[in-house]
Design a protein around this nucleic acid. Structure first.
Lengths: 107, 107
DNA sequence: CGTGTAAGGAATTCTGACACG
DNA sequence: CGTGTAAGGAATTCTGACACG
């Protein structure tokens, strides 16, 4: 509800380039390496979210540290996996509490 | 701090058109009538914020009700004036409290 | 590996103007 | 008044490729 703007894909690659300082070439390359996932508009142009931009900021730092895109991707997948596991676990706990006591937990 | 994305001018007119359903002609016209205030990118293209888009949604409703752009502008200015007055009054109260008691009020 | 660049085409955006009603 | 449209130019974006190291 809050933060709803953060993930809307509405920013063109030119604007992302302006904000991040990256060249369009770099931005497209990081997509090729599956570090960011812009959507496409009807006409086929890439659309990025504020979240994508923040993601790029982190990528810039890693690249400067000499980390390779492949490794950055590994780290991202690892974090995602942990998040998923946490979610499954929490959902399960909520489900059991609900089944036994009919309690509505706040998410 | 929160809501920081809402007012960043990063969306091109084409995207605004897609989201709102308005033609570019209409969007530019509402700017001419001083109902919205996009910024310009380095190259001179208009950039809108999520807030602008919400503003446009309200404008659409008013227009459909038969309200003229001039009147919509009047209403906007009136609301702005009230907000300003409230702010001045509150700032003054805060200032006096602070002067007499040195209390830090939360804004 | 990560990035630059030249290439050509397609789509975008801009302004000022004429039109209708 | 609010909106459509044709006009011409300038800037954007896209893809696939070659280059360097």
């Amino acid at each position: 509800m809050s933060e709803s703007y953060k993930h809307k894909k509405v920013i063109t690659i030119g604007t992302v380039s302006e904000i991040t300082g990256l060249t369009e070439r770099q931005i497209r390359y990081y997509e090729e390496r599956k570090l960011i996932f812009p959507e496409r508009s009807q006409r086929g142009t890439r659309k990025y979210s504020f979240h994508d931009i923040e993601q790029l900021m982190e990528i810039i730092e890693k690249i400067e540290e000499g980390v390779q895109t492949f490794e950055i991707r590994q780290e991202m997948l690892k974090k995602e996996k942990k998040r998923d596991e946490r979610k499954i676990r929490d959902d399960m706990i909520r489900g059991q509490l609900n089944a036994r006591f009919g309690i509505q937990q706040s998410p």
